[in-house]
Design a protein around this nucleic acid. Structure first.
Length: 824
RNA sequence: GGGCGAGUGGUGGAAUGGUAUACACGAUGGACUUAAAAUCCAUUGGCCUUUGGCUGUAAGGGUUCGACUCCCUUCUCGCCCACCA
């Protein structure tokens, strides 16, 4: 029926690319570099539609850049450490390494089936010691700089995974991986001092103008820098200073009580020997047992009690009660607040519940007569200062500055900046990860493993049960070692690193993946980096992208990198849903890419997924889309096939009437598709433009067939169609390109076409005629018509005249080359 | 509660101040066929008195010669953050 044997074509070209190393890359100073990277996958064994979408977008960008003459780096690897391998080990008694290697093998095969233009010679996997050796190297460097440190504190603990979690890994109070409720646990753990770079991480977001705004906002919120004042309240009995942090120092005259976090170290001191002591201690005990999630749930009533103590408000020497309550967190600010019920909703609710005082200090311009006692919610907006001593009458924004300055001069407060960002808890009680390269010696304390002894290899044969802490602690041959400093018997650290550590610098390793002397070659990394276009899921907006920026800044501070930001441009692609839901095994709504490739081929799948929606929008998978993609490819294939059968054009090419419009369409399409490939990335509209071109080629081809001869304009259109489509559907286009007479090499070595501006100049223009803004007529005019001639022509148009009906013309608006609007 | 985004035919979507619904899917009718599939052709927002006209981009208002597009109000949905003082 048809000859488009996609199976044979796809196999043929995949083999060709592999044999000719078409996509291998090397540093070349004579060409402009372009590094395009998609977030590397966890090797689960099978690729899913999310991968297909992510990697098709990246591949299209990469292939376009290759064809456009750039020196392109487009690598692929595997983020191979992590829990699924360990879970499989527990369930099936398999070795995580074997399981992972097997999965990688399957996955590579599937990726190759999609025809992605990767430089496979650069492939890496984080579970190999040649890679994780450099994880350990980075860790040691951080340790030496004081940026990797161990401390005991209350940590996030997933009871199901039996391991610690970073703050970034706690989503809605649950584990990011298994969704189990996270609890707090007192543990001694390793942290990375990401806060060392908090200012740079926030400030340099300004350099990322090509990142989606929402990712920037999410990172800003996560870092959470707030400017405020630390105000010194004095406890009346002990005269101890209790600093509180506020961003609303303008409301200080409205403070009617102070709240101190239950965990606050000063709390136990000030309540000593007070009648309330016992009750308060009981409350502290109760809160400490509560999980953070329960405590922070929005709908839970805030609990608290009076401590029996009082504090002096330093601005007016007022004596106000000190309370303790679970709505104040020890981790943020100073762990104590001044409560202003009239201008903070949380304080308002708490004050109402416990009958605490209220005083209005900022008046609402919309309700100037409002009284504090009549309020039904806090007024948190701007307004004019009242009941605030010398500051009355000022607007509160001005007062903020004046009060801060005045407090500093009186030494009752100090301007401060607080961040929400916390250091990164990086140790995990897992087997399948990078061993933390640390040795504990009784004499020398914590000693990092010297560089020449790296890597600390992950031992084989550890018993993985999923319970009872770090599996490595049960491998005695691993634990027992000698102190590198004093050679006394010592013990190894048995925790492993969070896998986000591995992925925080892999983009650097791709620049020199086989280097055994260093984590990367300095020259190569500074040639290829930063990544010009990074593509991945929005779910990494904070986690992976923030950590990667942190690592880049760290290595930059050591002088290894010349750049401060790893990813110049970021595209966050939308999810692929099925029936409005995320595809998952448990829901049984998985669409298997393999089955689709089997039926329609990889090119159709690539086209379908790009045509379905713009890349950043999520879309619902529909099998019908495949039919449409398939039909289009078939039409293109058949068109090129029939074109090849035509005789070459005679020396004197007769000009069939299709030629001029076809040439216009060809060059308009080149323009449109090039713009989208360059950075617009609306592949869906690029594809529709290609379909339009194809729709114009079809009748032109019929005419040429009838005439029995070729046409240069038709040839140009067909060539353009094949090249412009090649980044999207590479196999078929390689094949067609060859049939069109280009016998040598790959289509990526052909230069991407440039549009001819002359071809886009039209002799005649369609002008829209509007009466009072409504479209009433269309006229065709010469493109060089003057404005006056155009007006005259429009007014003489009979159809226009019937609409004017002799009414006086008030105004004529002319939009050059587009329309004329007559106002009557 | 805060932030960001979105709302357009039966469906995915196009148009970012100038012909609303490009391109496709689906549907209907026709050609081909013994038949079906495939393919090709035609129609396809709604309404009407149908060679024409009215109306129409969540709802209402505004700015403009002209608004899906800009501004204000309201509604709905999605995502992210959420006792951060």
């Amino acid at each position: 029926m048809n000859d488009y044997d996609f199976k044979a074509i796809e196999k043929k070209w995949q083999k060709f690319w592999q044999e000719h190393k078409t996509f291998s890359s090397e540093v070349r100073k004579d060409k402009e570099k372009y590094y395009v990277l998609e977030m590397f996958p966890y090797p689960s064994g099978r690729i899913h539609m999310g991968h297909v979408r992510n990697y098709t977008i990246g591949d299209t960008v990469a292939r376009y850049r290759m064809t456009a003459g750039y020196n392109v780096l487009h690598p692929m690897g595997f983020d191979a450490f992590g829990q699924p391998a360990e879970n499989a080990a527990i369930k099936n008694k398999t070795d995580p390494r074997e399981w992972t290697e097997k999965c990688i093998e399957w996955m590579e095969k599937e990726l190759k089936q999609m025809g992605f233009a990767y430089d496979w010679q650069r492939e890496l996997s984080t579970h190999r010691d040649e890679y994780y050796k450099w994880n350990q190297w980075i860790f040691v460097k951080m340790f030496e700089k004081g940026l990797a440190y161990k401390k005991g504190s209350s940590v996030n603990w997933c009871p199901r995974c039996e391991t610690t979690l970073a703050n970034e890994e706690v989503i809605n109070g649950g584990c990011w991986r298994c969704e189990a409720q996270v609890v707090q646990k007192e543990l001694e753990q390793w942290y990375l001092k990401i806060t060392e770079f908090q200012d740079a991480l926030l400030e340099d977001l300004k350099l990322l103008s090509d990142w989606p705004v929402r990712v920037i906002t999410m990172q800003e919120n996560w870092i959470g820098k707030s400017y405020g004042v630390e105000i010194y309240f004095k406890e009346t009995q002990t005269s101890k200073t209790i600093p509180v942090f506020t961003t609303r120092q303008d409301t200080i005259f409205g403070a009617t009580y102070v709240v101190i976090a239950p965990e606050h170290p000063q709390l136990k001191e000030i309540i000593k020997n007070k009648p309330e002591e016992k009750k308060v201690l009981k409350f502290i005990e109760k809160v400490s047992r509560e999980s953070k999630i329960v405590r922070m749930a929005a709908d839970v009533k805030k609990e608290g009690m009076f401590t029996g103590c009082y504090a002096i408000n330093p601005v007016n020497n007022e004596k106000i009660p000190i309370w303790t309550a679970d709505y104040v967190l020890m981790e943020y600010g100073t762990g104590a607040i001044m409560a202003v019920p009239t201008h903070d909703q949380r304080d308002f609710l708490f004050a109402k519940e416990h009958g605490l005082g209220v005083r209005l200090v900022i008046s609402d311009p919309k309700r100037p007569d409002l009284k504090a006692l009549e309020m039904d919610c806090a007024y948190e907006e701007d307004g004019v200062m009242v009941n605030s001593g010398n500051f009355n009458g000022l607007d509160n924004e001005t007062a903020k500055l004046k009060i801060a300055e005045w407090m500093e001069s009186q030494k009752i407060g100090q301007r401060e900046v607080y961040f929400r960002l916390r250091d990164w808890l990086v140790s995990r009680q897992r087997y399948w990860g990078t061993p933390i390269p640390i040795i504990y010696c009784e004499k020398c304390d914590i000693v990092p493993v010297p560089e020449k002894e790296l890597p600390v290899k992950l031992p084989k044969g550890a018993e993985i049960t999923g319970t009872g802490g770090s599996p490595l602690s049960r491998v005695s041959g691993f634990v027992k070692t000698k102190c590198p400093k004093c050679s006394a018997p010592a013990k190894r650290e048995t925790d492993t690193m969070a896998t986000f550590f591995d992925s925080s610098w892999y983009f650097l390793r791709f620049c020199s993946p086989r280097n055994s002397q260093a984590l990367f070659d300095k020259e190569e990394v500074n040639y290829w980096m930063p990544v010009d276009q990074y593509i991945g899921g929005i779910e990494h907006a904070v986690l992976h992208l923030l950590y990667s920026r942190f690592f880049t800044k760290f290595l930059h501070s050591l002088g290894y990198l010349k750049f401060r930001e790893p990813f110049k441009k970021l595209l966050t692609q939308g999810m692929v849903l099925k029936d409005g839901e995320v595809m998952s095994k448990s829901k049984g709504n998985i669409v298997d890419p393999d089955a689709i490739i089997e039926k329609y081929g990889a090119d159709s799948l690539r086209l379908c997924i790009l045509f379905a929606a713009p890349p950043e929008v999520e879309f619902d998978w529909n099998d019908r889309g495949m039919e449409g993609a398939w039909r289009f490819l078939l039409r293109v294939y058949n068109a090129v096939d029939s074109f090849c059968l035509l005789k070459a054009a005679p020396a004197k090419n007769p000009e069939p009437d299709f030629e001029k419009p076809l040439r216009f369409k060809t060059h308009a399409t080149i323009k449109k598709v090039t713009e989208e490939m360059e950075g617009g990335f609306k592949f869906n509209t690029a594809i529709s433009a290609l379909m339009e071109l194809s729709n114009e080629i079809t009748p032109a081809l019929k005419q040429a067939q009838a005439a029995g001869a070729n046409s240069q304009i038709l040839k140009e259109a067909i060539d353009a169609l094949v090249i412009l489509l090649s980044p999207l559907c590479p196999h078929m286009c390689e094949e067609l390109w060859q049939r069109l007479g280009h016998k040598e090499g790959s289509i990526i070595n052909t230069l991407w076409p440039k549009y001819d501006a002359n071809a886009l100049v039209q002799d005649e223009l369609n002008i829209i005629v509007q009466i009072n803004g409504k479209m009433r007529s269309k006229i065709v005019v010469n493109s060089d018509i003057s404005e006056e001639e155009l007006k005259a022509k429009v007014l003489s148009d009979p159809k226009t005249a019937t609409w004017i009906k002799g009414q006086p013309v008030k105004k004529i608006v002319v939009v050059p080359k587009k329309l004329v609007n007559i106002v009557v």
